[in-house]
């Protein structure tokens, strides 16, 4: 474990706590893409198949359980909680995310560390996570004004994988045999997708103005 990865995991956890706070405190999920949340739940379920077979550390196991439980709880809430589901922007959340599923799965069949069930699904989860934010970013552009908690949520979500890039650089310097091309290239793509969001987030922070994404 290194400071970059730890900060990355904490940033990821903070993003999830912000989303839970928004949904719990405002009983609303306006501005949140259910499709992105469903994709994240799938990312965790397919990535943490080794939850009961490979024990890495208490920290690793606990975080995996937290990520799986929170992502499923958010999807459940957005689908079934009477107040929350009413605030879901169904007519704006129209990104065809099934294409993202298919593309990630096909790529995982081609590019993986080993052609084994768990490894192909692990690669699938890596590719899927890289593009899972797209429905959310499209929804933000369509919904115009972004409320603070939603803006913070997306910001921390983007920042976590950026910190992981520093983690991979650090691990490479420590051990040149350490190569995680799949995770690293995918992480770069994932972070790049946030580029314009980060730009408008920085502008709104600098001008102390409301976060506005151009339509």
């Amino acid at each position: 474990m290194n400071i970059f990865r730890f900060l990355g995991d904490m940033t990821h956890l903070i993003s999830i706590l912000i989303l839970l706070l928004k949904i719990y405190a405002t009983k609303s999920c306006s501005g949140i893409s259910l499709k992105t949340q469903e994709l994240y739940a799938l990312v965790f379920l397919t990535r943490y198949l080794d939850l009961f077979t490979d024990f890495i550390s208490v920290y690793n196991t606990v975080m995996k359980l937290v990520f799986i439980a929170s992502s499923l709880a958010i999807v459940w809430c957005m689908r079934n909680h009477p107040l929350v589901r009413r605030s879901y922007d169904k007519q704006l959340d129209t990104f065809r995310h099934y294409f993202l599923l298919l593309a990630s799965f096909l790529l995982a069949l081609l590019l993986h560390e080993k052609f084994a069930f768990q490894e192909v699904l692990w690669a699938f989860s890596i590719y899927l996570e890289a593009v899972a934010i797209l429905p959310q970013l499209v929804l933000l552009q369509r919904s115009g004004n972004v409320d603070n908690l939603t803006g913070q949520y997306v910001f921390f979500l983007g920042a976590y994988r950026a910190l992981y890039i520093f983690n991979w650089i650090y691990r490479y310097f420590i051990d040149p045999h350490f190569t995680r091309w799949i995770a690293c290239v995918s992480g770069l793509v994932q972070t790049a997708l946030y580029a314009d969001f980060f730009y408008y987030y920085f502008i709104s922070w600098k001008n102390n103005a409301k976060l506005q994404l151009p339509a």
């Binding site: 990865r5 995991d9 080794d50 490979d54 690793n60 995996k64 990520f67 692990w122 992981y164």
Partner: peptide
Amino acid sequence: GEDEEVHDEL
């Protein structure tokens, strides 16, 4: 075996 790379990252 040790070549079995375990994914130790979240």
